[in-house]
Write a protein that binds this DNA or RNA. Structure first.
Lengths: 229, 229
DNA sequence: ATATAACGTGTAAAAGTTACACTAAGTAAT
DNA sequence: ATTACTTAGTGTAACTTTTACACGTTATAT
């Protein structure tokens, strides 16, 4: 709410935590900076907001520039505006996280027109990050830990067709604890949001598991309920 | 994360939803605008962020200017940055909610140096609001509905000493449903975060209830647990 | 003394959560 | 073809939590 128009202008930016799930590990896309400040440091991808785009559009653009993907699940989670957070001036940053499907047929490789390098890094092996990105990352991770219990965001990390074991792995790696297989399946199936595809995994060693698909139509029931594992 | 410094500057503002609980009702502090745009409309209190203050400081300042209070429970909950949200230009607004103790001895009256008028308004009788404040308010209310189940924010709306019935009223009015008295007490006491003061209400008609105080030391146990009513 | 209105308490049924271990099925190697 | 291996897939009983439900007690006001 504004009484008088601008006395003070600030620059604002978007920072994104792009989560991916690959080979049983939770990964995050980091870039290696090519410019001062923090040249050669790892950082979360981000950019300035352009005049005629909304915050959400800006976040989607950043993601698209890095990965070529559209229509990815993204959520704004916090805005960081401490005075000293950027050495070159007052920059306020709106932070988003996104959940990407790395798995499936083609492994997703970031396109680094954007920075020197961009890599998928295991969240357990996180390097030091530029600016206050460490704090941003921690808060984002806490958010998805919490949100995965209420909303079906785990599916966003998996290919369209997935097995119950894969789904359980996503929960385990995000929540940071082992879950009981029988209890997990019982509970997950009880929500009636998984469609059994009557189809088996292909090309795996050993016994193939049944494939499921997340059924968006039935999702309403689940929304907002606490899921306990 | 910034590659090149500012191509585009915007104005940042803070909007605050100040919640209060009074006479069994959930109230919100609204101001009547004194200037264009939206002159004479109701709006959430807010202001521009000043150059050398953080977002949190700015929110506290707005609250202080309106109410004279400090050290109030405030949380940032979302940032609104759609292109057309302000008729006079690109203004991005970081939204906070706060929980105030209206009750107790002295009723809290807003000081309106700030705008034409400022009033505590029952959230059930909300007028039309300026800008996108309707949307901001709805999202804020949803947030506290959710957060009251996880965190002891209900206490923030009550005087330091309160009765279980008052506490139940806060839950009921925020969640929008009646709760069972026995179950509520059983559950609330089971958390061991309420200290029985061995003291009774004074100056009430009819039987006086026992007063309790929220025990911050024991609060850790409660944090993050789902509370179901 | 009496009427009033809110206070404060317990239990049993139902639902949900937890802990726990083996057989089935498909692959790979010999 | 047999065997060894690895993951898939399944049920039950104990325990915990949640829900539904009603009445005697106590302080105040008249």
């Amino acid at each position: 709410m504004i009484e008088v128009l601008p006395q003070f202008n600030s620059t604002f930016s978007i920072d994104c935590i792009l989560f991916g799930f690959d080979e049983g590990e939770l990964k995050v896309l980091l870039i290696e900076r090519n410019e001062e400040p923090f040249k050669d440091w790892w950082a979360l991808p981000g950019n300035l907001v352009i005049e005629n785009e909304s915050l959400d559009q800006s976040a989607s653009r950043i993601l698209h520039e890095l990965t070529g993907l559209d229509n990815v699940y993204m959520e704004q989670f916090h805005t960081f505006g401490d005075i000293g957070r950027h050495p070159q001036g007052r920059i306020i940053s709106v932070a988003y996280y996104a959940m990407l499907r790395l798995g499936g047929d083609k492994a997703l490789k970031p396109v680094s027109t954007y920075a020197k390098q961009a890599y998928w890094i295991n969240v357990k092996e996180l390097p030091k990050l530029a600016f206050d990105h460490q704090k941003i990352f921690s808060q984002g991770l806490e958010k998805i830990k919490r949100r995965i219990k209420h909303q079906p965001i785990a599916f966003e990390l998996l290919p369209e067709k997935f097995t119950l074991t894969q789904l359980q792995n996503v929960y385990e790696v995000i929540l940071g604890k082992k879950l009981d297989k029988r209890n997990f399946r019982k509970k997950m199936l009880s929500f009636n949001v998984l469609k059994d595809l009557n189809e088996k995994q292909k090309g795996v060693s050993f016994r193939a598991a049944t494939l499921y698909r997340f059924d968006k139509r039935k999702y309403g029931k689940l929304f907002g309920k606490e899921i306990t594992f």
